[in-house]
Nucleic acid binder design. Structure first.
Lengths: 214, 214
DNA sequence: TTTGTTATTATACGGTTGAATAATTACGAG
DNA sequence: CTCGTAATTATTCAACCGTATAATAACAAA
């Protein structure tokens, strides 16, 4: 009976590894499959270590949820911060980034869905959702204001807000269904649908460089 | 030690009661809280009875999922089958029904979210989702074809399909966020946003009787 | 009223869960 | 090189999970 050998790791790397292992477990077998033992095995440690870095398993899940959401928003915001010249192009890339990998990805959807099911049950998760949703929407609204101004239209806050809600709805819905049953949309690529929908919602402002209208 | 008294019930009633109790448990405490003991207690029976009516707990969950989804689609389809004259009015009511109670409702969202998190893990649930999504989308496409024809536009299948995907996306996204954090939208009623969005996507076809554009 | 069927309850089982505690071992400070 | 600290492992615990099986009681048929 030899004791298991181990090596020490910095607090930050351990926490990150444990969260990564948690997300792996959730994406593969859902929240139900994310047990402390499974997570520990995946991270290459023993179960007890989890409660040394997190006050409880629930606390670790909250941290994991926060990381998933910030990862998604930062990915699409980065896509809109490239070297594009016009606001139209930035909005275009922002929308497309939402509906193409790595954001539109089965693993991300699994994680998102698992946590969403907890939002209505646990207030702590509701707060995390609220924060991430508002961060996403405000980034989108800012982008929309620039697009409107660029097109010579007065970017009234109320109009930007409503446009943001609507376009966010399109993105959310397409991302959800497209990633859930992607094979249904091979004949109708979702990025194109999203761009044309946003253009329609914007009252005809053209976003795409090349738009072969269907 | 007195034995618990009981009365017999018809097979259909019992199954329905058990499924109802299952949904109650899920909506209140998520899938994790929907244990056979909790469900049985809620239904006023003992746990063993569940496996007398369902081959397994998982089987009962599948039946419950199917009931939730058919309940939602039938509710909105019924809203579009009233005594409205024009197709425009029917589409209008269809969209509004999606974003107002009892469809836009916290309990329904809790149930939907809990099951969605299972769709990516269990193929049986994926199949149920696929069926219900296609049923919903085809109902919407049919409605859209009538609206286009009524407006004198040729209802090409490809256009109806793309419109259906896009409008379904708007509905899904708004339903999701609106029900998750409804208090964020008190100043921006979602049914109005959805209608105006659909009108924009339809290229200007007017759906509402009275549309005070924001 | 008696009997047979089966819906329902009661009980038990093996396995798993998150958490708590105690025993070790790696590593830095001195 | 030694020692103290704390990161990590090992073990244990009570509670709970879904399921299987046997005992019981309600109701229908005769």
């Amino acid at each position: 009976m030899s004791r298991r050998p181990f090596h020490r790791a910095g607090e930050d790397v351990r926490r990150h590894d444990l969260i990564a292992a948690t997300l792996d477990c959730i994406s593969e077998s859902g929240l139900q499959g994310a047990t402390v033992r499974q997570i520990a095995a995946r991270a290459g440690v023993t179960p007890g270590l989890i409660r040394h870095y997190f006050s409880s398993k629930d606390q670790m899940l909250q941290d994991a949820y926060r990381e998933v959401m910030t990862g998604m928003t930062s990915a699409v915001v980065a896509a809109a911060d490239g070297d594009q010249q016009s606001a139209r192009e930035r909005l275009h890339d922002f929308i497309v980034a939402n509906l193409t990998p790595p954001v539109a990805d089965g693993r991300r959807l699994s994680l998102w869905a698992a946590f969403i099911s907890h939002v209505r049950v646990d207030p702590a998760f509701a707060e995390i959702h609220r924060e991430s949703y508002l961060a996403f929407r405000s980034a989108l609204e800012e982008l929309l204001a620039e697009v409107l101004a660029e097109a010579g239209e007065e970017p009234a806050p109320q109009r930007c807000r409503e446009l943001g809600i609507a376009i966010n709805g399109v993105i959310d819905g397409l991302w959800l269904e497209g990633t859930l049953v992607g094979d249904l949309f091979t004949d109708n690529p979702l990025p194109g649908i999203a761009i044309r929908s946003a253009e329609a919602l914007l009252g005809g402002i053209v976003l795409a460089q090349d738009t072969p209208s269907s």
